Structures are given as structure tokens and as C-alpha cells.
Amino acid sequence: MSPALRLGIVGFSLIGVCYGFARFAFGLFLPEIDADLALGPALSGVISGGSFLGYCLAIVGSAYLTERIGARAVAVSAALVAAVGMAGIAMAPNAFWLASAVMLAGSSTGLASPPMAAAVAAAVRRDRQDKTNSTINAGTSVGVALSGPVALAIGGQWRLAFAAFAAAALVLAIATARCVPSATSRSATAGVLPPINDDVARLIMAAFIMGAASTAIWSFGGQLATLRLGWGTTGIGLLWIAIGAAGIAGAGAGSLVGRFGIDRVHWGFLGAMAVSILAVGSGLATPGTTIAGGALFGAAYVMLTGVYLIWGVTALSDRPATGLMVGFLTIAIGQTAGAPLFGLLLDALGPNVTAMIFAGIAMTAGLARVNRRAPQPQ
């Protein structure tokens, strides 16, 4: 097995554990966590937003450290932080402890992505980098898809699930230490904030809005299914399996962008995200539309994050870790704002109106278009 292939497999797995387990599995188990700890929608939104806030703080430090001390050390740290955070969730006796652990676990995702972009830039041929990056990014989907069967197998015992997830993260830390190169940036601008040129500003606008809209499903998909359909652990587990399995399509982001360009792919999958939010949360939701909407959301979200990854790395081609950081950080800032807002609106307006508002928010991200004068990915 070539070093590049090993890197792709380990990177795919690292993203799957950090994003699928440490960050997004919280929404899967939220109804059971809410029942045990009496959180309520508003507090659930604040705690979920804390996960995204942890990501925001970590990804900035990760990009800086990757350029200074190398990809391997930062990637291993991501796996270890995920393990500690998820172990903390498993042991949480109250809402404050839970919020702290969720924030720590969520920060692992911020640590994970920049070193993988730097490692790909160092170890993979240039003509294969977009496809490799988008494939690694799709690891999110496998993590989400696997968390669903775990929930079904253990009957919603969320403490046991997060303990198992923490153990998986420890195993992955060892594999990461063996397979990820210690790549550092040779750019003279390493450690300096990137220039906010026109194309970077457009990326920031789009990523923020999409991130805010995505919390309708990531943070409240399980709650919406419970409110609309009375679903328990089994139904919500199936929804998460659908989200994760369909998200594998996001591995094709590099190929689609190369064929159709960023703008067309961006618009198309923002529309898919808007439809998915309505399918799960509107007054017309049925079991069939909810599962289909979850699948559509999974494909749309992972595809869109792949678009922003390529957009950022292209806009800052001499600093791939920082280019990825700009787009992914802004997604998380949007999620930090979007989760509490969704929770408040859900309390005040109910699921139907809130879902329509967030579907509309998703579509406004398409107003940001790639600067035609900027270099396009090949």
C-alpha cells in the first residue's frame, strides 16, 4: 500500500471519528440526553452551539500549529482530544459538565482538518489533491452512518455509545501517528493571517450562511423527528444512517467541481439542503420524507463542505491548511450562531415556521459566487 493511499485511509477515518462521532452524534442522542438531564430545546441549542464554538477556537490554532510543528503532531492531538471529550460526555452528570465535554469533543474536528490538508499537499500528486481532499472530507459521512447502527444496537444508551466512540478515537490516534507525515509549511507567510481578498470574502459569506442553516438537521434533526412523528431511538437512528450513507456522495465534490465549476455545484446543493430541511421539519413531513430528507441533507452537506474546502485551498494555494481553515472555521461560526437561533425559534414559532426560515437561509448562501478572475481548480 502506497504512503498516499495509507494517508487517505487514515485521514478518512480520522475525519469520520472526529466529525461523525465527536461532533455530530450529539444530535442523534439528543432526545435521550434531554430526557435524562432535562435540557429543553433552548439549552440544547446552546450546548450544541458550544460544540461548534469549540471547533472555531481549535481550527485557528490547528492551522497555525500545522504550519509550525507539522501535520502529524496536530492530527494525533485531534484524535486524543476527541477521546477525552467523548469520555467526558459519557460521564456527564449534569448540563454544565455535558456542555464542557461537548465543547471539547467538538474542538477535535477543528484540530483534524488543517493537518490533513497539509499532509495531502505534501504527499499526494497535485492533480490528485482535490479528489483526495474531498474523499477524506467525506469521512464525516461514515462516522455519522456508523453512529446510527450503534444507537440501534444499544437501544439509545448514550453513555455507553460515547464510551465506545472514545475507545475508537484512542485506537485511531495510534494509526495516525504511524501514517500521517510530519508536513510543515515552507511559506514565508506561515503563521500570518491570510489576506481577506475578494474571493476569500465571498467564501466567508457563503460558508457562514450554509453553516447556520445546517444546524436545523445536525443539531435538531432528531428533535424534529420526535416532534413531528413521535420517533424514538429506532427512527432517529435510521435517520442518522440515511444522512451518513448518502453523505458518501460528497467524496465526488472534487470531480463535480472540476467538471461544472464551483458556482453550479454550490447552487445545486444549497437547493438540496433547503429541500431536505423542509422534508424533515415542515408540517408535511412523513416517515418517508424524513428519511429521504435526511439522505438528501447528508449528500448536500458533505458536498458543500467539499466545495468550500476546494474554494479555500484554491484561493490560498501556497497555504493549504490555512485555506481550508478559512472555509471550515466560517462554517462553524455559522453553526455556533445557528444552533441557538434554531432552538429559540423552535420554542417560539414551532417546527413548521422554523424549518421554512432555515430553508430560506440556506438558499441565501448562493448569493456569494466565486470571483471569476480568481484561479479555478483544475
Rank of each mutant, 00 (worst) to 15 (best):
G20Q: 13
I47V: 15
A22F: 05
V46I: 15
G61Q: 08
A25L: 14
A78Q: 03
A82P: 11
V17C: 12
L53R: 11
R23A: 01
L80Q: 08
F21I: 00
S51Y: 12
A83E: 07
V81H: 08
E67N: 09
S77Y: 06
G70W: 02
G61M: 12
G85L: 01
G61C: 05
R72F: 08
S77D: 02
V74G: 06
L39A: 00
S62A: 15
P41F: 00
V46C: 07
G49Q: 13
G45D: 01
E67V: 05
F21A: 06
S44W: 02
F21S: 05
V84K: 03
L65V: 01
C56R: 02
I69Q: 10
S44Q: 08
V74Q: 10
G16S: 14
G61D: 10
G61R: 09
G49F: 12
A78T: 00
G27A: 09
S48V: 12
T66F: 06
P41R: 09
G54T: 10
G16F: 09
E67I: 06
V60I: 15
A25E: 13
I59E: 09
A71M: 07
M86N: 11
A71Y: 03
L57Q: 05
R23W: 03
G70L: 01
S62W: 06
G61L: 09
G49K: 10
I33N: 04
C56D: 04
A58R: 07
S48Y: 14
L53Y: 14
V81A: 07
V76A: 12
S51L: 15
